[in-house]
């Protein structure tokens, strides 16, 4: 349908409905991905990410992978994006990003050029060389077994892929512990005393850190006297934060 006029046999799209579904899903995915990059507001980026994830689920459905599609929507769109949105809202960074200030002058054009060259190269390779598509058969666990796809996947996860499965269990435990440790507040006043630094602008930071690299950072109040104004906000934020951390656990 899309480019079925091309001569190359590998680019032949055989049935029209599938081609239409693929085209729609591809447009959804690309549009969402562009939205993630282009949107100035992080909340809009997160919502664009949801669009891309739904498009990906559509592709999984087109490939006949119902279970992975459902997991994609539930885990990615339902949990991970909600976690993103929660952190954005919690931190209050849902304002437009400062685009004008660009420390590395030529970085954006170079990045664009690099990605363009790479992607076009990959696409040409995929379109013009059949060997770029890998083996034509494999000796792994067969896909279409009796009992359906979910049963087959479950059996494979608990037999062939048992070790990776256990490793992911350990990984999740480590991630949970890491998140708790990272976001834990140290109330002993020695380390991580937070309030004095909130709202401090960069010039102050540079002044104090350039003169004496290690002292003057911990526990001292703001030099510009902004402690009183910012402290109140953060006290409220701390309460929200403690409530929110339970939500974060639920999301996982």
């Amino acid at each position: 349908m899309m480019m079925s006029g091309l001569a190359h046999p590998f680019l032949a799209v055989t049935t029209l409905p599938d081609a239409i579904v693929f085209a729609v899903a591809a447009v959804i995915i690309i549009a969402g991905a562009v939205g993630v990059i282009v949107e100035r507001n992080p909340v809009h980026s997160a919502l664009s990410l949801v669009i891309t994830l739904f498009g990906t689920a559509l592709i999984f459905l087109l490939l006949g992978d119902d279970f992975i599609a459902a997991v994609q929507v539930i885990v990615y769109a339902g949990a991970i994006v909600v976690l993103f949105l929660f952190v954005i809202m919690f931190l209050g960074v849902d304002k437009k990003e400062m685009i004008a200030r660009e420390p590395l002058k030529a970085q954006r054009p170079i990045a664009l050029l690099l990605v363009l060259v790479s992607v076009v190269g990959i696409l040409l390779l995929g379109a013009g060389a059949h060997y770029a598509l890998g083996a034509s058969s494999s000796t792994g666990v067969a896909n279409h077994q009796s009992g359906g796809e979910v049963a087959a996947l479950g059996r494979a996860v608990f037999t062939t892929y048992l070790l990776p499965f256990e490793a992911t269990a350990a990984l999740l435990i480590i991630a949970i512990i890491g998140a708790v440790v990272l976001t834990k507040r140290h109330n002993d006043g020695i380390e991580g005393s937070v309030l004095p630094y909130a709202g401090k602008d960069e010039s102050d930071e540079d002044d104090s850190s350039d003169e004496d690299g290690f002292s003057g950072e911990d526990g001292s109040f703001d030099e510009d006297g902004s402690y009183g104004s910012d402290g109140d906000d953060l006290d409220e934020g701390e309460q929200e934060y403690r409530d929110g951390r339970e939500d974060e656990e639920l999301v996982k």
Binding site: V141, A142, N143, A152, A156
Partner: peptide
């Protein structure tokens, strides 16, 4: 394509 469950896993 390869009829291999490893991809899904």
């Amino acid at each position: 394509k390869l009829n291999d469950l490893g991809g899904q896993a």
